[in-house]
Amino acid sequence: MATTVIGARETRPARFWAATNGKKVVMAITGAILFLFVIGHMLGNLQVFEGPDKLNAYGRFLRIVPEILWTVRIVLLASVILHIWAAVQLAARKIQARPVGYAKHENVVSDYASRTMYWSGPILLAFVIFHLLHLTAGVIHPGGEFVEGDVYHNVVAGFQVWYVSAWYIFSMILLGFHIRHGAWSMFQSVGINHPRYTPILKKAAAVLAVVIVLGYISIPISVLLGLVK
């Protein structure tokens, strides 16, 4: 075996990104940003139960300083792009790494959520695009007119259409699966694992996933049941 020197001319970030481990660190950090957004967004959305005035006031509050709004949007967009970019490259590596598949392969210890990240991710992306077109840009408005600034009306009108609600609920359940794995996996990717604390992290991830799913789907379910109108 001969030794060879590589990367003498490469910059360190480029080499870090080239390694699968580096990509996973990027996915962990961007995933953490998106995870915090998901929690904050849910807490904001739940104000729908406090009536139109409260929710619309919250909507206006977010837009008071456009610079802050756009900073947050740009950070989120950059996180989404890096997260997906790394995932696509890892998925490509996965396909290349096993050119001849198994005739039979059984899973022994892994959970469903971790094995389906490559499925829940792209479906969530499709959902986010639809969701932005529906409730932020107002390009798609199946349940009636989109009223700029009247967040409450747009939400209720949208969710009264059953398939919009069904798509939303389905996507949020997938988000739960994604968080079930991602919320503890991000610690593993940056090198934090301890026999005492990692089991707690895993349980916390499962609990948070359930709380987030219930928090989000309570809105379309309440609209469909006529509790919020």
């Binding site: 699968t20 990509k23 996973k24 290349q96 790494a97 210890v109 892994s110 971790s114 094995r115 996996s185």
Partner: peptide
């Protein structure tokens, strides 16, 4: 990474 292995996605099937 040079050897053509895939990347770890923390699934844990190995253990």
């Amino acid at each position: 990474n040079l050897e053509g292995f895939g990347g770890c996605t923390n699934i844990g099937e190995c253990t």
